[in-house]
Simulated assay, not measured.
Amino acid sequence: MTDIHVGFAPDERPEELNLIRFRATLARLLNGPNRPDLLVLSGDITDHGDLESFAKTAELLKDCPCPIIPLVGNHDSRAGLLSAFPQVAPAEGGFLHYVVEAPLGLRIICLDTLEDGRHGGAFCEARAEWLAARLAEAPDTPTLIFMHHPPVVAGIDWMDPAPDEPWIIRLREVLEGQHQVQAIHCGHLHRQITTQVAGIPLGVTPSVAPLVAMDLNPIDKDVPDNRELITTEPPTYALHRWDGVRLVSHYERVGDWEVLARFHAGLQPMIEGMFAERD
């Protein structure tokens, strides 16, 4: 899950919209058919980085049966994240980047792309050296990288970085030739996007909070044109399936959907036919 933004409107009654969307997404994930082994929260967990919002998030997650892997986004604070998720230990320089050894031989690297006071991403020399060292430790181990800010221009003009920002170039240089990296997954843009960086597949997971409107036209900051910016599209999460050989990423929107078909005896011949084709 990404971009939950707890605390955007804390005085809404009886409960703020972002908390309602988070509850629904968490319920679907934990009570649905695909319960995860790990839960990644890839940044902007809160809207203001305050301790109260982080505490609300931690309270909702207290009964989560799997380990939680949290990252900081530009709306978060490192102090707030550490207060809610004490399992995270600050690294040298105070950065909240770390490695998780996941099931079936998958290595997960979590990056810290926060620069206080900046909306866009950051990836300084110290962080580049840390990532290069972690990748060098296990050059033959399948690796998945999570970070908040996508290091690409996606075409949503008001949310995008400049293509030549130094932090993007620095990250790309570290990733060149790192064939063990199966994929990079990010948040921040509040939309589902698929691209690549340094030849590595990169996916952006849509937000739990309201989504950014789909408008790829250039924007003039000096001319308000009444374009759509934020919509009430359903909250969405990603389910990344690693079988020990390959990574497949699924995305599910959360809503009160009507089930049109179930596996009953009447549909058994269809299912049997599909399995027969495999043989």
Rank of each mutant, 00 (worst) to 15 (best):
D164M: 07
P139I: 14
I145A: 01
E173K: 14
L135H: 03
E115P: 00
E173N: 06
I145L: 14
D164C: 08
I156E: 03
H179I: 11
C110H: 14
E137G: 03
L106D: 01
D116V: 15
I108S: 06
H190S: 05
T141M: 00
I169R: 05
P151G: 02
F123N: 04
I168Y: 07
P103Y: 04
P142K: 05
G155R: 05
H185M: 15
G105F: 05
A126N: 13
V181D: 11
A102S: 14
L106R: 01
G187C: 04
G117I: 13
I169S: 13
C186T: 13
A138V: 06
P150W: 02
L111W: 06
Q182P: 01
G94V: 10
P142V: 11
V100Q: 12
A154K: 07
P161D: 10
G117C: 12
E137W: 06
L106E: 09
H149M: 11
D116Q: 13
G105H: 02
A133F: 08
P103T: 07
A122G: 10
I145D: 04
L171A: 05
L96W: 03
I145R: 00
F123V: 01
H149R: 12
D160E: 11
P166M: 15
Q180T: 05
V152I: 12
C186P: 00
G120N: 07
R170Y: 13
G155Q: 09
H148I: 01
F146C: 09
E176R: 09
A162I: 12
I156R: 00
L144Q: 08
H190E: 12
H148Y: 08
E125C: 00
L175I: 02
P150L: 06
F95G: 12
H188A: 04
I156L: 09
P166W: 15
I109D: 03
V152D: 02
P161G: 09
P103E: 10
A183I: 08
L111D: 07
E101Y: 08
M159T: 11
P139C: 14
V153D: 01
A126K: 13
C124V: 04
E137L: 01
H190R: 00
G120W: 08
G120R: 03
L111Q: 05
A154C: 15
Q192H: 12
G105E: 12
E165N: 01
I108R: 05
E129C: 11
A138F: 03
A162V: 11
Q192M: 13
C186L: 09
R118E: 12
A138Y: 04
W130V: 03
A126D: 14
L131G: 04
D157L: 06
P151I: 03
D112W: 00
R191N: 13
Y98Q: 03
D157K: 03
H188C: 08
A132P: 04
H148P: 08
A183H: 03
E165C: 07
L96N: 00
P139A: 15
D140F: 11
L189E: 02
A162P: 06
L175D: 01
Q178N: 10
H185K: 10
A183V: 06
A132H: 02
R118G: 10
Q182R: 15
L175A: 07
Q178K: 15
C124M: 00
R107C: 07
Q178I: 08
R191K: 09
P139Q: 14
I145H: 02
Q180N: 14
R107I: 05
V153G: 04
G187I: 04
P151N: 10
A122Y: 00
